[in-house]
């Protein structure tokens, strides 16, 4: 318990942002079960990944009022996140989001205005990411695909591209989500892709 007198509650795991911080940014890491989403968030985050949830009804509608939360049809979707302080003003939040179907009902509500997404892929289970890629294209969210190496048989880039039906302009890279440097490279690849899209908006999905 935080004591009444202490100036700040004990939150050593989550250092406070600078008072000047005024612009939150979002990047979403999306992928199938156990593909390394939380691992990637942890690799680059300045805080231990935290977990939270959003409420929706079984009908797939985000709950609009507390009557909705109160009814038995309400269900929750959990996601985790980490944080990267970029400079005195900008703070990047990195979200690890499950790619399963019900999650996408909440996409607009949670991730409207997201800079872009990393689709994390296990090359042994490529089909797991089809749905996520479909939905991102549908929402017009720019993304890169990062293949996490779990030691399956090696695939060529062309094989992966074909299996995922990836347009040539979408970056495809290998990564190791456990490595900070590798995860950082994935994020930089995404942001460079965004910068390219900005100069050539007709490439936007």
């Amino acid at each position: 318990m935080a004591s009444e007198i202490s100036e700040r509650p004990a939150r050593s795991e989550r250092p406070a942002l600078a008072g000047t911080a005024d612009n939150g940014l979002k990047i979403v890491v999306v992928g199938g079960f156990g593909v390394g989403k939380t691992t990637m968030v942890r690799s680059v985050s300045e805080i231990r990944p935290l977990n939270t949830e959003e409420t929706m009804t079984k009908a797939g509608e985000a709950v609009d009022d507390l009557d909705g939360v109160r009814t038995k049809t309400a269900t929750t979707v959990a996601f985790d996140f980490g944080r990267i302080t970029l400079d005195a003003h900008n703070v990047l939040y990195l979200f690890g989001a499950p790619g399963q179907e019900r999650f996408w009902f909440l996409w607009d509500r949670l991730f409207a205005g997201t800079l872009g997404a990393v689709v994390l892929v296990d090359t042994r289970r490529l089909a797991d990411s089809w749905y996520a890629i479909d939905r991102l294209e549908h929402h017009g969210t720019p993304f890169v695909v990062a293949c996490n190496d779990f030691g399956g048989p090696p695939h060529t880039e062309a094989q992966v591209r074909e299996a995922l039906d990836l347009p040539p302009e979408v970056p495809l890279i290998r990564c190791d989500a456990r490595s900070r440097a590798s995860s950082k490279t994935v994020l930089i690849t995404l942001v460079e892709h965004l910068a390219r899209l900005q100069k050539a908006p007709e490439l936007t999905p």
């Binding site: 612009n23 990267i84 970029l86 400079d87 900008n90 990047l92 800079l115 950082k184 942001v191 965004l194």
Partner: peptide
């Protein structure tokens, strides 16, 4: 903003 994100990363 994108440039600031890149520099920060």
């Amino acid at each position: 903003i994108l440039e600031q994100v890149l520099v920060g990363l």
